[in-house]
């Protein structure tokens, strides 16, 4: 695991705030600017979505961001270029979030070699479950990129095997369904984190449906951090190329809420 990734959760009792945005939505320049503002606002890790034509795990908000980014010409190489530009100014931990096919098609080894060269620390692939992850994890490990495992409200008996092999941190999916803002999160996340804790002390971050500082705080109380995507993408959709200051304001409010825990 990279040193940057280790740092995300390394301070005892400090909760992490993880921010997501889609590469190239609406432009590469805007994405670079927003990532730097996220860091300045206190984000501990940024997830960069490599857009995919058919993002089956996403709700409407991130689906639309994928479409906008692809329409504006964003590609896997374009996402790497964004990372290169961010790394000229920042050492914030970075993860890619995308689907199996863009990575598979790029070539696993070529993809992860480039991740290491440019400084991407982890990857999250929602359509690569425990049963299938090996084909991606071996080349990723060889290049020191952590493949982040996910745990869902339905995982139950699977939690043990998934957690025991997890690297970096565990992405705990807060709710059933796809990504998107939810008014209420009903899953008993405390119980899920407790089952994970029986197997491993790897950090757990909760994502899906979180948009308000209150929700982020509640999630951080039962875990090691909160992940927010759709709420940020909504801001970017609304303000377009002028989104960076708004993203800063929002991430700051979320980070402050998480830090109160």
């Amino acid at each position: 695991m990279s040193n940057r990734l280790k740092k995300v959760f390394d301070t005892p009792n400090k909760k992490a705030f993880i921010a997501f945005l889609t590469a190239g939505d609406p432009t590469a320049d805007c994405t670079v600017e927003c990532i730097l503002e996220m860091e300045r606002a206190g984000a501990d890790l940024v997830e960069i979505g490599i857009p995919f034509s058919d993002p089956t795990a996403e709700g409407v908000v991130i689906q639309d961001a994928n479409i906008r980014a692809l329409k504006n010409g964003m590609t896997t190489d374009g996402a790497f270029e964004i990372v290169r530009r961010v790394r000229e100014k920042s050492q914030i931990p970075l993860a890619f979030m995308t689907y199996a096919n863009p990575v598979f098609h790029y070539g696993y080894d070529r993809f992860f070699a480039k991740c290491r060269e440019l400084g991407v620390d982890a990857i999250i692939v929602p359509d690569m479950p425990f049963e299938e992850k090996r084909e991606m994890e071996e080349p990723a490990n060889a290049h020191d990129v952590a493949v982040i495992s996910m745990i869902a409200p339905t995982s139950e008996s699977r939690i043990r095997e998934i957690a025991s092999e997890a690297k970096g941190f565990l992405y705990v999916v807060s709710s059933m369904g796809v990504t998107g803002v939810r008014s209420e999160i009903r899953t008993d996340l405390g119980a899920i984190v407790e089952s994970i804790r029986k197997v491993t002390d790897i950090p757990c971050a909760v994502g899906f449906g979180i948009s308000t500082p209150e929700q982020a705080k509640a999630m951080a109380e039962v875990s090691d951090g909160a992940i927010v995507g759709s709420a940020i993408v909504k801001i970017i959709a609304k303000y377009g190329e002028k989104a960076a200051p708004e993203v800063y304001r929002y991430v700051k409010s979320m980070k402050d809420a998480v830090a109160q825990v």
């Binding site: 359509d127 479950p129 425990f130 049963e131 299938e132 869902a152 339905t154 995982s155 139950e156 369904g177």
Partner: peptide, 12 residues
């Protein structure tokens, strides 16, 4: 073939 699907659906 295989099962390239989200964790939420795996148990099902």
């Amino acid at each position: 073939g295989g099962q390239y699907i989200s964790e939420t659906l795996m148990n099902e």
